[in-house]
Measured scan of single mutants.
Amino acid sequence: SGVNQQQLQQLMDMGFTREHAMEALLNTSTMEQATEYLLTHP
C-alpha cells in the first residue's frame, strides 16, 4: 500500500489510528516527520 508496515505499526503502538498513521506516512518521508505530522494534524 505504499507505506512501511513496521513504521505503521510503531505509530499505532503510540496510540494513533491506522488511518491517521497511514495519512502521516504518505505525507512525510521519515518516522520523525510522520510523528510530527500526527502531533500537528490531530
Results as ranks from 00 to 15, higher is better:
1 S>R: 07
1 S>D: 13
1 S>A: 14
1 S>H: 14
2 G>Q: 14
2 G>Y: 11
2 G>S: 12
2 G>W: 13
2 G>V: 13
2 G>D: 11
2 G>N: 13
2 G>A: 14
3 V>H: 07
3 V>E: 06
4 N>D: 13
4 N>W: 10
4 N>E: 08
4 N>G: 07
4 N>F: 13
4 N>A: 08
4 N>R: 08
4 N>Q: 11
4 N>H: 10
4 N>K: 10
5 Q>H: 12
5 Q>A: 14
5 Q>M: 14
5 Q>Y: 12
5 Q>T: 12
6 Q>W: 12
6 Q>M: 12
6 Q>F: 11
6 Q>T: 12
6 Q>G: 11
7 Q>K: 07
7 Q>G: 06
7 Q>W: 15
7 Q>D: 13
7 Q>M: 13
7 Q>A: 10
8 L>S: 01
8 L>Y: 03
8 L>V: 07
8 L>E: 01
8 L>R: 00
9 Q>L: 11
9 Q>W: 09
9 Q>K: 12
9 Q>M: 12
9 Q>H: 11
9 Q>V: 09
9 Q>Y: 08
9 Q>I: 10
10 Q>H: 10
10 Q>F: 12
10 Q>I: 14
10 Q>N: 06
10 Q>E: 09
10 Q>R: 07
10 Q>A: 13
10 Q>P: 03
11 L>N: 00
11 L>H: 01
11 L>R: 00
11 L>Y: 02
11 L>I: 05
12 M>G: 01
12 M>N: 02
12 M>T: 06
12 M>W: 02
12 M>S: 03
12 M>D: 01
13 D>I: 07
13 D>H: 09
13 D>L: 10
14 M>N: 04
14 M>I: 05
14 M>E: 04
14 M>V: 04
14 M>L: 12
15 G>V: 00
15 G>A: 03
15 G>F: 02
15 G>Y: 01
15 G>N: 04
16 F>E: 02
16 F>N: 04
16 F>H: 09
16 F>C: 03
16 F>A: 09
16 F>D: 01
16 F>V: 06
16 F>I: 04
16 F>Q: 02
17 T>P: 15
17 T>V: 11
17 T>G: 14
17 T>Y: 07
17 T>C: 08
17 T>D: 13
17 T>I: 12
17 T>S: 14
18 R>E: 10
18 R>M: 12
18 R>K: 12
18 R>Q: 11
18 R>G: 05
18 R>F: 09
18 R>V: 08
19 E>D: 13
19 E>K: 08
19 E>P: 10
19 E>N: 10
19 E>G: 09
19 E>W: 12
19 E>Q: 11
20 H>T: 08
20 H>Q: 12
20 H>W: 13
20 H>A: 14
20 H>Y: 09
20 H>C: 10
21 A>R: 00
21 A>D: 00
21 A>G: 04
21 A>K: 00
21 A>V: 15
21 A>T: 04
22 M>L: 13
22 M>F: 09
23 E>C: 05
23 E>R: 07
23 E>P: 01
23 E>G: 05
23 E>S: 07
23 E>V: 10
23 E>N: 10
23 E>L: 10
24 A>H: 01
24 A>I: 01
24 A>C: 02
24 A>Q: 01
24 A>R: 00
25 L>F: 04
25 L>E: 00
25 L>K: 00
25 L>Y: 03
25 L>W: 05
25 L>G: 00
25 L>C: 03
25 L>H: 01
26 L>D: 05
26 L>N: 08
26 L>G: 05
26 L>F: 07
26 L>S: 07
26 L>R: 11
27 N>H: 11
27 N>W: 06
27 N>P: 00
27 N>F: 08
27 N>A: 13
27 N>V: 11
28 T>M: 03
28 T>R: 02
28 T>Q: 02
28 T>L: 02
28 T>H: 06
28 T>N: 05
28 T>I: 01
29 S>H: 12
29 S>I: 07
29 S>R: 06
29 S>K: 10
30 T>Q: 02
30 T>S: 13
30 T>W: 01
30 T>N: 10
30 T>R: 01
30 T>E: 03
30 T>I: 02
30 T>L: 02
30 T>M: 02
31 M>T: 04
31 M>Y: 14
31 M>K: 03
31 M>I: 14
31 M>F: 15
31 M>L: 15
32 E>S: 06
32 E>M: 05
32 E>P: 04
32 E>T: 06
32 E>H: 06
33 Q>R: 04
33 Q>T: 04
33 Q>N: 04
33 Q>P: 01
33 Q>I: 02
33 Q>D: 14
34 A>S: 01
34 A>M: 02
34 A>L: 04
34 A>F: 01
34 A>D: 02
34 A>E: 02
34 A>K: 00
35 T>D: 03
35 T>P: 05
35 T>G: 04
35 T>R: 15
35 T>M: 15
35 T>V: 15
35 T>I: 15
35 T>A: 10
36 E>Y: 06
36 E>S: 05
36 E>I: 07
36 E>Q: 09
36 E>R: 05
36 E>A: 09
37 Y>C: 06
37 Y>P: 05
37 Y>Q: 07
37 Y>K: 04
37 Y>I: 08
37 Y>L: 09
37 Y>A: 07
38 L>P: 07
38 L>D: 03
38 L>Q: 03
38 L>H: 03
38 L>S: 02
38 L>E: 04
38 L>K: 01
39 L>H: 15
39 L>P: 08
39 L>F: 14
39 L>N: 15
40 T>Q: 11
40 T>L: 12
41 H>A: 08
41 H>R: 05
41 H>K: 07
41 H>V: 08
41 H>N: 09
41 H>T: 11
41 H>I: 11
41 H>Y: 14
42 P>K: 15
42 P>N: 15
42 P>D: 12
42 P>V: 15
42 P>G: 14
42 P>E: 12
42 P>W: 15
42 P>C: 10
42 P>S: 15
42 P>Q: 15
42 P>I: 15
